[in-house]
Simulated assay, not measured.
Amino acid sequence: MNDRPRALITGASAGLGREYAEQLARDGYDLVLAARSESELRQVAQDLAQEHHIHADVCVADLATQRGIDDLTTVIDHTRIDVLVNNAGFGLKTSTLDSSADQLIASDMVMLRAVTLLSRAAALQMRERGRGGIVNVSSLAAFGTYGTYSAVKSAAMLVTEALATELADTRVTVTAVLPGFVTTEFHDRMRVRRAGPSWLWLDAERVVADSLRDARRGRIISVPSARYKAVYAAAQLVPHPLVRHLSDALGRRRRARH
């Protein structure tokens, strides 16, 4: 009987999701990898299984649809999941007013509805078993006013904190990860230029390692790197009208470039 722990990771075909899969496989976890792209997902599963001698299952699911969310919920309900990583996400290149209703709905589905429902399903199973860990990738953008992206990331962070409070007397940990700028395919897929100086950018390996360490320590909020911990601390003190002003200025500069 295989007694290795098992992790389910959404958005696992690339970027942070791929790195979470890599590091958890290295730690001896079997994997359930979820994303929309079947070919990329199967390649990741094959590579990790061969390299780390673990078992990797693939679940093709579009989390912008209720069917996709339901499919993964069923997996959680019928498979022992020791760690859930809600990582799937995407950004909108256009502002709220210039985005279509379908784009806004998809953003909400992937980065909030899926996070909420999958976290709930995993938490129920983990609480019954007496242990487990949930890692939800939010963003430091949750403290800005960058349109829908900030809104859904802020809501996902609050859902995570609320769930952590509900599970405080159990051995189930729930962690919201708040990365700053990370070097992945995220901005390339949006076809936007990476903002700011190079020192602002973290590599995915560092972000994932820091967040997994924090999750294992039971921390509810994880902010990878000292530089972004300072940004997070400052965000607690800056008056919200100033946050709106700074967010608007940054948004205007980005839209002017594109």
Rank of each mutant, 00 (worst) to 15 (best):
L8W: 09
L8C: 10
I9L: 03
I9D: 06
I9R: 09
T10K: 07
T10V: 13
A12S: 12
S13E: 02
S13A: 10
A14P: 01
A14C: 03
G15K: 02
G15S: 00
L16E: 02
L16A: 07
G17M: 06
G17D: 05
G17N: 08
R18Q: 14
E19W: 05
Y20V: 03
A21G: 12
A21Q: 05
E22R: 11
E22V: 07
Q23G: 07
L24R: 03
R26H: 08
R26A: 14
R26P: 01
D27S: 14
D27N: 06
D27C: 03
D27H: 05
Y29T: 01
Y29E: 00
Y29L: 01
L31Y: 12
L31G: 13
L31M: 10
L31E: 11
L31T: 12
V32Q: 05
V32F: 10
A34L: 13
A34V: 15
A35G: 09
A35Y: 05
A35P: 11
R36E: 01
R36C: 04
S37T: 13
S37N: 13
S37E: 14
E38Q: 12
S39A: 15
E40I: 00
E40V: 01
E40C: 00
E40G: 01
L41C: 05
L41R: 08
L41E: 08
L41K: 09
L41V: 12
R42D: 00
R42Q: 00
Q43M: 13
Q43F: 13
V44N: 08
A45Q: 09
D47V: 13
D47I: 06
L48M: 07
L48C: 11
L48Y: 06
A49E: 11
A49V: 12
Q50W: 04
H52M: 01
H53F: 02
H53P: 01
H53K: 05
I54E: 04
I54N: 09
H55A: 12
H55S: 15
H55T: 15
V58M: 04
V58F: 02
